[in-house]
Structures are given as structure tokens and as C-alpha cells.
């Protein structure tokens, strides 16, 4: 297992280097001059030249790429063109907020969605099932910035129950996590329902019931455990995406997360920030995928036994060679 994890982490290095190379090249050759964008419409040629010189933008492509890679290997992601703040410090400062929002939203969504999805599957075509299916259709279709604004108007403005913006404490978390969670919830509900429906028709469920197992055990142990792989896959993907920041949610609720920071850097052509951000996200996505793969093994003994069998084989081979 340890060897598997370390190999997966080492595999990420060439991927990340590829990401750096591709992003840098695309940005370098895309139209627009970062110095001019920062200085604005009224800037003179002299000002643009001075700033380009200061930021090292006059150097040729190869020199700039090499310099970036060299700094990166020393762990330095550079400083933002726009506000001269250290990119890595800025990302690390914003990441906890994004992580908190992502974790809360996914937890909120997953708990409700899995329960609702299970009930909806075992009571297929019931009123409850129709409500759940209807809700998930609605949840997927509603644009979340709109939902966010509506919640603010209703809950903060008319009812005066919760603050409208900011991210300073539990009271402030509620609206963003609901807004963010609804979209995720809809997806998880649908996949839980369909995956459960598939499983509860299997013979081994009938066997479990036939041997007199209590219904709750049948559902949670025999059925859910077999239905969980696609659910975990989806939640993993959603979580990976959520860690990139929820731009619209952050904008509407004024949350200082990663999403808005990265999107702003793209419109400002702030190359060090875009680079650092994308690199960080690629790394996170890799880690989340790895965690999901490990979870597979945890929930499905067939997968983990594959590793074990491989390992046993390797040990045997080794023993043979030693002989």
C-alpha cells in the first residue's frame, strides 16, 4: 500500500511539470500585455516599458520559462504582477477558507443526499421518491449565483436571520454552504438512487432477506456497501472541483477563497498567480483522486485484495529469486 501511494505521488511530478509548461506557453502567446493591463487604459508607452522591465517581461520566452522553473524548484512560486504579494503565501492564506467551504458543502450535501437517495430507491415511485427526483432536477438546473442572491434577499434582507456576506463564523457559513451544497446534493441523490436501485434487485439481497436479516441491515450493509463505489467516485470528483474554489459563491457572498483570486488573475493576465493556482489545483486534484482510490479499497474488499495478491506474488517472486 505504501509503495502504491508513493508511486502515485511520484507519478504526479511529470504531470505537474507538464501543467507548468502548457500553462506558461499558452499564457505567453495569448494576446494582451500584462504590464499594459495592470497600468490601465491611460498608461503611456514609457510607463509600460518601465513596468515590463521591472517584471522581467521583456526577456524571451525561454529565459522566462527557465527562470520560472528554477524558482519553482526552490519552492518559490513568484510574486503577483498586480499586487506584488507572494503567490504561495496568498494561496496558503486563502486555501483554508476554500477547504472549509468545500468540506462543509460536500458534507451537508452528501449526508442529506445519500439518506434521501436510499429512501427514494427503496420506495421507488412513491410520493417521497417523486419529491426527491423533482428536487434533484431543480437543484441541477438552478444557477447557484441566483439561488445565493435569492437566499440573501429572503433570509438576510426580509427575515434578518443571517448575515448577507462575509465568512467570519458559523452564522456566516450557513447560506453559502446551502447554496453551494444544493448543486452537489442533486447529483449525489441521483447517483445514490440509481446505484441503489441496481443493487437491491440482486440475488444476494433477496438471500439476505430470506435468511431473516433485519431490513435496516440489509439496506445499509448488504445493499449500500455494494452501491457505494459510484457515489464515492462522484463525491470525490465534486470535492476536487470544490477545492478549486466556488467562484460564483465567493463573489456573491464576498468570501476570500481561491476561486475568485484565480479567476481575477486570469482577467488581469497575472501569470505567476495563474501558474501557481493551476499548479496547486492540479496537485490537489491528484491527492483527492488518490484518496478516492484508497477509499475504494476500504469499501470494496475485492479491490484491496488485488493489492494484497499482487504483494504476495511479489514476495513469492522475491523469495524464489533469493532461492
Amino acid at each position: 500500500m505504501f509503495r502504491y501511494i508513493s508511486r502515485r505521488i511520484i507519478m504526479m511530478i511529470p504531470v505537474l511539470l507538464g501543467v507548468v509548461f502548457v500553462i506558461f506557453t499558452i499564457l505567453y502567446f495569448s494576446p494582451g500585455d500584462p504590464a499594459r493591463t495592470i497600468l490601465g487604459v491611460t498608461a503611456t508607452e514609457q510607463e509600460v516599458q518601465m513596468l515590463s522591465e521591472e517584471l522581467g517581461l521583456n526577456d524571451p520566452y525561454g529565459v522566462q520559462l527557465f527562470r520560472y522553473l528554477k524558482d519553482l524548484l526552490r519552492g518559490d512560486m513568484g510574486r503577483s504582477y498586480k499586487n506584488n504579494k507572494s503567490v504561495s503565501a496568498e494561496i496558503l492564506q486563502r486555501f483554508p477558507t476554500t477547504l472549509l467551504l468545500a468540506t462543509l458543502s460536500i458534507l451537508f450535501a452528501a449526508v442529506i443526499a445519500i439518506v434521501a437517495g436510499i429512501i427514494s430507491a427503496i420506495k421507488q415511485y412513491s410520493v417521497f421518491d417523486n419529491i426527491v427526483t423533482g428536487f434533484s432536477l431543480l437543484g441541477i438546473s438552478i444557477p447557484n449565483f441566483w439561488l445565493g442572491l435569492m437566499l440573501i434577499i429572503l433570509v438576510s434582507l426580509h427575515w434578518r436571520l443571517l448575515p448577507a456576506s462575509g465568512f467570519y463564523g458559523p452564522r456566516y457559513w450557513i447560506l453559502p454552504l446551502i447554496t453551494n451544497g444544493v448543486g452537489y446534493m442533486a447529483g449525489i441523490m441521483r447517483i445514490t438512487r440509481s446505484s441503489m436501485l441496481e443493487v437491491i434487485r440482486q440475488d444476494y439481497i433477496r438471500t439476505a432477506r430470506a435468511k431473516g436479516q433485519r431490513e435496516i441491515v440489509v439496506i445499509l450493509k448488504h445493499a449500500l456497501r455494494n452501491a457505494i463505489i459510484p457515489i464515492i467516485t462522484l463525491i470525490g470528483l465534486q470535492f476536487g472541483r470544490a477545492l478549486g474554489g466556488a467562484v460564483l459563491i465567493e463573489t456573491v457572498f464576498a468570501i476570500p477563497g481561491l476561486g475568485k483570486y484565480l479567476v481575477d488573475s486570469i482577467s488581469a493576465k497575472d501569470i505567476p498567480v495563474i501558474q501557481g493556482g493551476v499548479l496547486f489545483l492540479a496537485f490537489l486534484f491528484g491527492v483527492v483522486n488518490l484518496c478516492v482510490d484508497i477509499l475504494y479499497g476500504f469499501f470494496d474488499p475485492r479491490i484491496s485484495s488485488q493489492y494484497r495478491r499482487k504483494k504476495e506474488k511479489a514476495v513469492k517472486m522475491h523469495a524464489k529469486q533469493a532461492n
Binding site: 442572491l149 440573501i152 434577499i153 438576510s156 434582507l157 434578518r160 448575515p163 448577507a164 456576506s165 462575509g166 465567493e250 463573489t251 456573491v252 457572498f253 464576498a254 476570500p256 475568485k260
Partner: peptide, 18 residues
């Protein structure tokens, strides 16, 4: 000085007294 990027949210915050 609170940075609130969305114009509608800024307006609502004045109304709520935030």
C-alpha cells in the same frame, strides 16, 4: 473596508445594516 465584489450584495448589505 470590506471587499464585496458583487454589486447586488453591496447594496443589500446597506439595507441589512451589515
Amino acid at each position: 473596508l470590506r471587499y464585496i465584489p458583487e454589486a447586488t450584495t453591496r447594496a443589500i448589505e446597506v439595507e441589512t445594516g451589515g
